[in-house]
Amino acid sequence: MDILFFCFGFITVMYAGFLLHLFSGIAKLRTFAPKNTTPTTGFSIVIPIRNEAKNLPALLQSIAQLKYPPELFEVIIIDDFSTDQSERIYLNWRLTHSPFDTTFLENVRRTGSPKKDAIARALPILKHPWVITTDGDCILPENWLHTFHDFIQETKKEMVVGPVILKTKNNWFHDFQQLETLALQGTTMGSFGNHQGFMCNGANFAYTKAFFTELGGFDGLNQYAGGDDVLLLQKALQQQPQKVGYLKSAAATVETRAIDDLFEVLQQRIRWAAKSTGYSNSYAKGLAVVVLLMNLSWGTALLLAFNHKVPWAFVASIWAVKYAADFILMYRANNLLRGGKFFLPLASSVVYPFFSSVTGICALFGGFRWKGRAFRR
């Protein structure tokens, strides 16, 4: 039993150390303020969709409200064989928004990764040098492109990672998802601040077509169902890290919708976790292992306490250290992305380790379903 106590304690210390290091990294990462310079950068907004009829109106409306010259951006929507009214919604919007340059294409499946196929489908017809990807369930801030433009002009980066936050309703299940989103965003910012970046979100990710081609595109990544964002980023960081930057700015933060169905959330998280098997970054691999071990340790300690194998005080001390480390990381991310809006995820912090352990194990040994399709790891 002494060995078990030591293992639990060692994993907890390792976990807290990782998160405190990430916390310090967020402070090192400069917050970027838009300069309101004259726009010159051309963007091709690439949006892979499948069955997004309920979300497309809000996304299209946010595109119409972008404060950026219409001649400097285009919108390319790649439909991955939707069975709902997504195309009709787009066509109706197009009729009343003629000043915008938009294209609606059907996806061409060549690999086991629909999103990579969709992006590859769009690349040959781009009219602008910059690709900027987002998702069908997102809402774009009005100064989104302008902020990216200013950052690109100042830093001369060729790949830029932007922040993402959930648009939630006032209920516990959405707050539960927000907990994970803030933790992931805090991890993303902290790792970039420590010059160990490895994570991004395709809902807010930009790169030049020239740099994408220079990297060899998705070559070597097509065996993974996901990874059009994270694995491409890690490929870039491995080859030319000086060309990659993180845009830490509330003005560039994209909102994505929380999910209302537990099964869909579980499948989405398994899909995300499955990418970790393709990580080329040793720091990312180490962090993923420590996070999984921490969640498994706390869940195991809790079960042992119920069976009177370990003291409740020991379980409480593990939870307290974990919660404190989680909270300070999320607190810093929350201040930037949600303006410090009240967020105290006590109940979620008890449930989340079990949820995370299940998704991690399923990602390692099984597949997942997404948008009505089954995928293998």
Results as ranks from 00 to 15, higher is better:
262 L>A: 13
263 F>R: 13
264 E>N: 15
267 Q>C: 14
268 Q>R: 01
269 R>Q: 04
270 I>A: 07
270 I>H: 06
271 R>Y: 03
271 R>V: 00
272 W>V: 02
273 A>L: 03
273 A>M: 11
273 A>E: 11
273 A>I: 02
274 A>C: 08
275 K>Q: 13
276 S>D: 08
278 G>K: 10
279 Y>W: 13
280 S>L: 14
282 S>E: 11
284 A>K: 00
284 A>W: 03
285 K>D: 05
285 K>Q: 12
287 L>V: 15
287 L>W: 14
289 V>W: 14
289 V>C: 14
290 V>G: 09
290 V>L: 11
292 L>T: 14
294 M>F: 07
295 N>L: 10
295 N>V: 10
295 N>F: 09
296 L>M: 15
296 L>R: 10
297 S>Q: 09
297 S>Y: 08
298 W>M: 11
299 G>P: 06
303 L>A: 14
303 L>C: 13
303 L>Y: 12
305 A>Y: 10
305 A>I: 04
307 N>I: 08
309 K>G: 14
310 V>A: 05
311 P>C: 05
311 P>D: 07
312 W>A: 09
314 F>T: 05
315 V>W: 12
317 S>Y: 11
317 S>T: 14
318 I>G: 06
318 I>K: 08
319 W>Q: 08
320 A>H: 06
321 V>A: 10
321 V>I: 15
321 V>N: 04
322 K>I: 00
323 Y>A: 03
324 A>V: 10
325 A>N: 05
325 A>W: 01
326 D>C: 04
326 D>M: 04
327 F>S: 01
328 I>P: 00
328 I>R: 00
329 L>N: 02
329 L>D: 00
331 Y>W: 07
331 Y>E: 00
333 A>V: 00
334 N>V: 01
334 N>F: 03
335 N>I: 01
335 N>P: 02
337 L>I: 12
337 L>Y: 08
340 G>I: 02
344 L>C: 04
345 P>K: 03
346 L>M: 10
348 S>N: 10
349 S>M: 06
351 V>D: 04
355 F>A: 09
356 S>H: 12
357 S>Q: 06
358 V>H: 05
359 T>H: 04
362 C>W: 10
362 C>K: 12
362 C>A: 15
363 A>F: 06
